[in-house]
Amino acid sequence: MTEIPDLLLEPMVRHALHEDLGGYGDVTTRAVIPAGLTYRAKLNAREAGVVSGLQIAAIAFRLVDATLEITARKRDGEACAPGDTLMEVAGPASAILSAERVALNFAGRLSGIATLTSEFVAETRGTNTRVTCTRKTTPGLRAAEKLAVLHGGGFNHRYGLSDAILIKDNHIAAAGGIRAALAAAKLHASHMLKVEIEVDTLDQLAEALDEGGADVVLLDNMSTPDLAEAVRMVGGRLVTEASGNMRRERVAEVCATGVDYVSSGALTHSARTLDLGLDF
């Protein structure tokens, strides 16, 4: 099971709970639910998909009331069918109701990302190409959304700007060209810090190969025939990443070119929320 420590996820969950509970708490529950009332609730899937966000949902419930009894029926990364119970929560009804929306928002959103990622990954069958996400994530939710990509069978690109040197088109323009940008990157890179450069054309790729210094080349918005030619030109010297206009319907033909990675921002910025519900 792929997880990251709860303490890294807690701040975003606390923020979401503060946002939802406001300055005075859950007034509806306080007005309607008798003190001491206990219930058992089930977090159920209402459609098929790949589960993610259960770890975060559990954090939300426990932050509201640490006495709640939480039983996992599915694990993050597992497939679910309509009607499947993913988690059971037992204890004070008021606590369950107060945490419900935050728990569902995270679990539904992240399960949607995991599900879409799994659909992209399915298109790579029979090839060695891996599907990876980008930094096009919801502000403040990057760790959770990238975790959901892993649950869907994908891989993660950079978590942030400090992870690697990625020279994009605007860096190239500001630096004075591909050769100048790569020459400068060589002075700052180390054996622990990889260099990737973005190219839009085969001519730019040839220039990058001549200059050297890159570990990875990002082939941006290229046609499928150009991607195939780019892979031939690289000849295994660099890791190749195809990006831009990477719709799920196109993934299989891009994988057939032999690229090492297909990256898509859609995995995180365009995933549909999976329909989940909490039933008493």
Results as ranks from 00 to 15, higher is better:
A164Q: 15
D76V: 07
A189T: 15
Y39H: 14
M192C: 06
I178L: 15
G25A: 04
G36D: 09
S190C: 05
M192P: 02
A31V: 13
A103F: 14
T134E: 05
K136H: 12
E119N: 10
L116C: 08
T71Y: 01
T129L: 14
A214Y: 03
Y39V: 14
L193A: 10
A206M: 04
L54V: 09
K42N: 11
R248S: 09
G53R: 09
T137M: 07
V64L: 00
R125F: 11
D275C: 04
V262Y: 00
T240S: 05
I113M: 12
A31I: 09
V13Y: 04
I70K: 06
L8S: 13
I33G: 02
I113D: 11
L276Q: 11
S243Q: 10
D169M: 12
R232L: 12
V234H: 11
I165C: 01
A164N: 03
D84C: 04
L227P: 06
I4M: 11
A228I: 06
R142Q: 09
D215Q: 01
I172A: 01
V216G: 12
T67V: 00
A164L: 12
V259D: 03
A174W: 05
L63G: 02
L278Q: 07
V121H: 04
T71S: 10
G152P: 05
R75S: 14
R142D: 02
T85V: 13
A228W: 15
T134S: 02
A214I: 03
V259S: 01
L267C: 00
E78R: 08
E229T: 15
V199A: 06
A174R: 13
H188D: 04
G177S: 09
K42I: 07
R250W: 12
A252H: 13
F155L: 08
L17R: 14
L205D: 03
A266K: 01
K168C: 07
I165Q: 00
H157N: 14
T201P: 01
V64M: 12
G154V: 03
A214G: 07
R109K: 15
L43I: 06
A252Y: 03
H15V: 07
G126R: 10
T67A: 09
L267Y: 00
A35S: 14
A48T: 09
H171G: 04
M87H: 05
G53T: 08
R158Y: 12
G126L: 10
R125S: 15
C80W: 02
T115E: 06
A41G: 08
A271D: 01
D220G: 04
G160E: 10
G140H: 07
D169R: 08
D6L: 10
T138V: 14
F106N: 03
D20P: 04
